[in-house]
Every structure is written in C-alpha cells, then in structure tokens.
Computed example of a mutant assay.
Amino acid sequence: MPTTGPRPILVIAGPTASGKSALALRAAQECNGTVINADSMQIYADLRIITARPSEEDEATAPHRLYGILDAAEVCSAARWRDLALTEIETAHEAGRLPILCGGTGLYLKALIEGLSPTPDIPDDIRSAVRERCDREGPVAMHALLAEQDPEMASRLNPTDSQRICRALEVVTATGRSLADWQNDAPDGPPADLHFHTVALLPPRDVLYEGINKRFDQMVELGALDEVRRLDERHLDPKLPAMKALGVPELRAFLHGEMTLPEAVTSAATKSRRYAKRQNTWLKSQIIINFSINAKFSESLTTSFFAFIRENGLTS
C-alpha cells in the first residue's frame, strides 16, 4: 500500500448472515489485507460459535484483528472500539497492508467514519447509584425520572431501554447537562488522511431470512449450546453486552427449563431477523455506500467486487 497521500480503508458492511466475513477474507487474500472486526459481539472471546466468528482456519489464512480479544465480563463501548480500531488501522498501514473493516455494528462504523462527540467520565458512585436504583424500581420508573431531569433525552428513549435511560441519567446527574447537548458537540473525527471505501452486502429479505434460520440450526449443531452453558456457569450480570448477544438469552432460557430447544432456536432466529432488518435500514440511511451488492456473498460476486477494488487502487 502507498505510504503517502490518502490512506485507504476498505469497509465491508451488511446485516447478520449476509456473508461479510467470507468476503472480507477473500479481499484480504487478494489485496494483502488485514481484517479488523467491527462487530460488537465478535469482540468477545466467549462467543465464537453463537456470533459466527471467523474460524481458526480463516484467521490463520489472513491476519484478523479485534476478534475474541475481550472477556464476556467486560464492556466495549463504541469509543473503546474506535481507539482499538484506529491502532490496528495504523499498524496495518505501517506493515503495507490494506485495513479491511468487517462488521454490521452501525454505531461502531459511524463512530470511526464520522467521529464521536465527547462525553464525560461518570464517577463510579453516581453510576452505581443509578444502576442500583434501576434494579430496584425498574426502567419505566427511571424513564419517568429522566423525563423530569432531561425531557429531551426521555423523549428519544423507549421506557423499557434501561441501559440508555441509565446512561442519560448518569450524565445529567454528573454534569447537570443533557446527554443530547453532549452529543451535539463537534465530533472527534478520524485522522484526516484516512479514505474509506464502503462495500455493503444487502441481500433480498427472503434470502437473508432463510440464511438466518439455517445458521441458528447450524450453530446448535456446532456446539452453541455448550458455549452458552459455559457462559451461564460464570453467573455474570445478565445486563452485560455479551450476555445479550443474539441467541444467548434464548439458549440460557432453555438451559434453565424456561423454553424447549426448538422454541429457543425459533425465538433467537426471529430476533436475528428483526435485527437484520434494522441493520439494513441503518446502512441505507446512515453511511455513504460506495458499492452495493444486492445478494448474499458467493464466489460469483467476486468479479464485480474486485473490479471495484482495482478501480479504487486498493490492491497491493
């Protein structure tokens, strides 16, 4: 890759089960690339199967970074991921490799491409007090409290969205200023010399949904239940991001006798389809897509994909 001028980054985005990881691997092989994870759940070491993380064989075929690097007990914010991603991007460029961001977590991609507005550090005592009160009184009561203290943020949030309600309450309590005001401040953008080339895999809905349904059956066959059982045995806080990954709450419900296995798989697939729909909507409205592929990844798509790669000078 060139060492002067705009430094290229290939972004491969798309909904769950669209084939992003396979396309990123092919791109890495063809373009001397490093695949950098932009999926908020694939960052956790405990969730290889249930998040369809690249296999060990795939990771050995081309460099993969930020996959499985955090324990399920940790929380990875968009800001934390952004800092990690910028470091890996710099490392890839210094090694003469093409950084290939791969994932469907919209907040992560937006944080990197457009930047993040600054938000304050929250003292531990305030965070603990807000979270403990939410556990006692529930999110609806906390939403009512937020409506009194920060009506603008309350109007934006679902009364059952405990995580975001608590975050908004923590900020207004600690700073006396609405989180909305903080978010309106000028964002801290990426280095000015980074040039993003975004490819989006956007399969037709019926094709995507069929793939999601099949994938959950395959996950169970590959050992997702044992993976979730090991996670469940750690007795972690169910509010942690890793504990809310698609499929984890449903398989935990099966392990606790609250669902049959077919019910758990069906429920997880349904939630995944809804999530994929939201991802599609977000991608089409929130980021600039330079090249769209209206199909699930297959080798037959590589001709047009690599033509785009060559046209934009992304090959070695």
Rank of each mutant, 00 (worst) to 15 (best):
R48C: 07
I287T: 04
M219N: 02
E311G: 09
I122W: 07
D71I: 00
R205W: 06
G96K: 08
D46H: 12
P249L: 02
P151A: 09
N280M: 10
T175V: 09
K244E: 08
A13L: 04
E263P: 04
S292I: 05
V171N: 11
T119E: 05
A245I: 00
I12M: 03
E250G: 09
E88L: 03
A111W: 01
E170V: 06
L107T: 08
V35S: 07
Q279L: 04
E148A: 11
V220W: 02
A154V: 09
L107Q: 07
T198E: 02
E94T: 11
D237R: 12
T198P: 05
T303Q: 08
L66A: 13
P120M: 04
H256G: 13
T4M: 09
S55Q: 12
A111F: 03
L86W: 00
A60I: 01
R65F: 03
Q286E: 13
T198M: 12
P204R: 11
H195D: 15
C76I: 06
A186R: 15
L66Y: 04
P203G: 12
S178V: 07
A269R: 06
A78W: 01
S178N: 09
E233F: 05
L201N: 07
A92G: 09
A60S: 13
A27Q: 01
A73Y: 12
T266V: 06
A147Q: 13
C166E: 14
L47S: 10
T302P: 00
R156L: 15
K239Y: 12
I165H: 11
I49A: 08
R97Q: 15
R278Q: 13
Y209I: 07
L84H: 11
M142R: 06
A45R: 15
A28H: 02
I126H: 04
A307F: 00
A38L: 15
L146G: 01
R310K: 06
F291L: 03
V35L: 01
L301K: 12
K277W: 10
A174L: 12
K239V: 10
W182A: 11
A78P: 02
A95G: 10
I9H: 05
L66D: 13
L194C: 08
L261R: 15
A224E: 05
L169V: 01
Q163Y: 04
M243I: 08
A144Q: 14
D185R: 15
L10N: 00
K110A: 11
R167A: 14
C31D: 00
I113A: 10
N158I: 00
P249F: 03
E258P: 03
H143A: 13
F216V: 00
E74I: 07
A141M: 03
L47P: 06
S292G: 08
L10W: 02
P54T: 08
A180M: 11
A78T: 04
P190R: 12
A52W: 01
I165Q: 07
S55M: 08
I309W: 02
A85D: 02
G68M: 07
